[in-house]
Amino acid sequence: MSRKKGEQGAKTADWSGLDDDILIKAFLNGDQTAFEVLFKKYRDMVGRLSCSIVKDESAVDDIVQEVFLLAYRHLENFRGQAAFKTWIYRITVNEAIRHKNKGKRWQPLPENEAEYSQLPSTLVVMENGKNPERILIDGQQKSLVHRALAQLKEHHRLILVLYYLEDQSVHEISVILQIPQGSVKSRLYYAREGLKQVLAPILYGEGHQSPENVHAL
């Protein structure tokens, strides 16, 4: 994989607008620049997804490297039935889960339990009228939310990340996770329910019967 850097940079810039299929064919024909274009195109996406799964930024580089190493070695086995993005998502999910199962757990919570005693029991959610998207949470309250989100099941978190953050469709998620589309919808439903159950007590207090009780500004 050693090439001259000048030619490489110009060629990469020229090829950045090409489709993935063309780049894959070029790489399989022996052009290493095509894989470099693919690498730069999907590196951040793979990194973000793996960061969402493992919750350990120090492990992201290793996972990204391992994902593209696998893709580099096995790209000839890519049959083109799904998009390259979906294929590399699948590798990323596998690698991230494998890396996480090796014992590296996300520890987003403060180690000292005394810090929690200082946190407010209920967040002050600042809503702007009918638009709940605008929610401001300060740094101290984030720890409380992190603690609640840590209670979410792993497959629920993964499907929420893929659907709402990575903007993958139900069909793409079914390909990535190798489950039927109905299962994807079912998991999405229960993931939203789980999210509501873990966050509602923090957002609206223990008796979260009425969102109107929210401290709105």
């Binding site: 590196r43 951040d44 580089d61 709940p132 998207e133 929610i135 709402y164 953050l165 957002l203």
Partner: peptide, 20 residues
């Protein structure tokens, strides 16, 4: 609201400049 909180918390962790 819960989905908005989830998106905000998750996207903050993903807002890193460069991955990989």
């Amino acid at each position: 609201t819960t989905l908005a909180v989830f998106k905000q918390i998750e996207s903050e962790g993903r807002a890193q400049k460069e991955f990989g």
